[in-house]
């Protein structure tokens, strides 16, 4: 069988991946929730005999808020309503915020892993907003409260079980600024 070959270059498409493709432009550090710094005083060597009174966290400190007030409320499955336990915690938060009027807070809404990502982002926003609204109803100036949703991106319990999921469905009140160090 006779075959004649004819070559025709039909199209030449050139597409180049620019220099930055593997080196995206630098991005600013996230102002992520600030981890509480352990401010436990170092043990003091004393020659003289002194009575050291047991001390709790410094009043107005991050530890004070965490230990004596409570920083998280917990939601039912798929829920966003505050039960009486949650309301007690938020009342303590409001009272504490009244005592330390320079403090600003960020309320984060969190969800368990048993939902889809985008719906959970919306649900987390709704949860954070419910906390904010309740604090505002107790007299906290809304301008002191920011909200954020992490959806299912910020679990605090690593397990994949009912107990972990219950812990991960929370509203997290975090001191952003203005606390005693």
């Amino acid at each position: 069988m006779q075959t004649s070959l004819k070559l025709t270059v039909a199209a030449a498409v050139l597409l180049s991946l620019g220099a930055c493709a593997s080196k995206p432009k630098p991005v600013a550090e996230e102002t992520a929730p600030v981890e509480v710094v352990d401010t436990t005083p170092a043990p003091t060597e004393t020659v003289e005999e002194t009575v050291v009174a047991p001390t709790g966290p410094l009043a107005g400190s991050l530890d004070d808020f965490r230990v004596n007030v409570g920083e998280r409320v917990y939601y039912d499955l798929d829920g966003y309503r505050l039960d009486s336990d949650d309301q007690e915690i938020l009342k303590r938060q409001a009272a504490w915020l009244a005592s330390y009027p320079k403090v600003r807070i960020l309320v984060a809404g969190n969800c368990d892993e048993r939902g889809t990502r985008e719906y959970n982002l919306a649900l987390g926003e709704r949860r954070a907003s419910v906390v904010k609204d309740y604090l505002v109803s107790l007299g906290v100036d809304p301008s002191r409260i920011d909200t954020i949703s992490y959806g299912k991106e910020r679990p605090i319990a690593a397990g994949s079980d009912e107990q972990s999921w219950a812990l991960n469905r929370n509203g997290f009140t975090q001191i952003v600024s203005g606390s005693t160090s």
Binding site: K6, T8, A11, A12, L17
Partner: peptide, 19 residues
């Protein structure tokens, strides 16, 4: 690093017949 990911030319060949 500049990297040419794709530079592709296509061409049709064999203008004439087989079967």
């Amino acid at each position: 690093m500049k990297r040419i990911l794709m530079a592709l030319a296509t061409a049709f060949l064999f203008a004439t017949s087989f079967a």
